[in-house]
């Protein structure tokens, strides 16, 4: 039996984290959270989360950086925006979840073989390389990096897609890939400059 402390120490905080998140466009209103729990109530996935959305809001505001960035919660958010729509304080909870996902990827604290962030990364890479998504290749790449054996369980689905003419191995691409690459590079440049 593993005994774990369930109450957090104040020393676990990373002072300034909450302020920093709340300074990001779209995340400002977090300051006004009244901890009513409407977000957790309407969230279709909160029953699977280690911290409910309401708890994540308070953890962020109270500087518990490590807890939120390592939580499953941020990856379980399916971006249905139910919480954002229902929040009585107009907090854009979905956008805060996006901000936390970006930070978890940047700091490399997400579970490496967890399919959700892996899918996000492979998706992004494919947009960079080709400008468009080809679903078959995207899913294949995700399985190869997370659980190659599980791909076998997808054979039936592939067959059905073939039967209905919805399966394609063609990697769709845009014509001006260099244009998109240049735009992306310029964003990196701008952001680097902004931080310097």
């Amino acid at each position: 039996m593993e005994i774990k402390r369930t109450i957090k120490y104040e020393a676990d905080r990373v002072p300034g984290f909450g302020r920093d998140v709340m300074s990001v466009p779209g995340c400002e209103a977090l300051e006004h959270c009244i901890q009513c729990g409407t977000c957790s109530g309407v969230c279709p996935l909160s029953i699977y989360m280690d911290y409910t959305p309401r708890q994540v809001m308070e953890l962020v505001r109270s500087d518990f950086k490590n807890e939120v960035l390592q939580s499953h919660t941020i990856w379980l958010c399916a971006s249905c925006y139910a919480c954002t729509t229902e929040c009585p304080r107009q907090i854009r909870i979905t956008d805060i979840m996006y901000e936390l996902k970006q930070r978890a990827i940047k700091e490399e604290v997400y579970p490496k073989r967890f399919p959700i962030p892996v899918l996000a990364e492979e998706f992004t890479k494919m947009v960079h390389d080709y400008g468009r998504i080809s679903e078959t290749w995207l899913v294949t790449k995700m399985y190869l990096r997370t659980n190659p054996m599980a791909a076998l369980g997808m054979a039936g689905l592939g067959m059905n897609l073939m039967k209905t003419g919805r399966f394609s191995l063609k990697q769709d691409k845009i014509e001006h890939r260099e244009e998109l690459a240049k735009i992306m590079e310029a964003v990196d440049h701008e952001n680097g400059k902004a931080k310097a």
Binding site: A78, S79, Y98, E99, K101, Q102, I105, P117, L119, A120, E121, F123, T124, M126, V127, G131, R132, I133, I174, E175, H176, L180, M184, V187, D188, E190, N191
Partner: peptide, 17 residues
Amino acid sequence: DWNCCGATAYMAVDEGK
């Protein structure tokens, strides 16, 4: 020559891009 909108995945990696 439209490109992928980014869907829900891209926002999780880099909002600016």
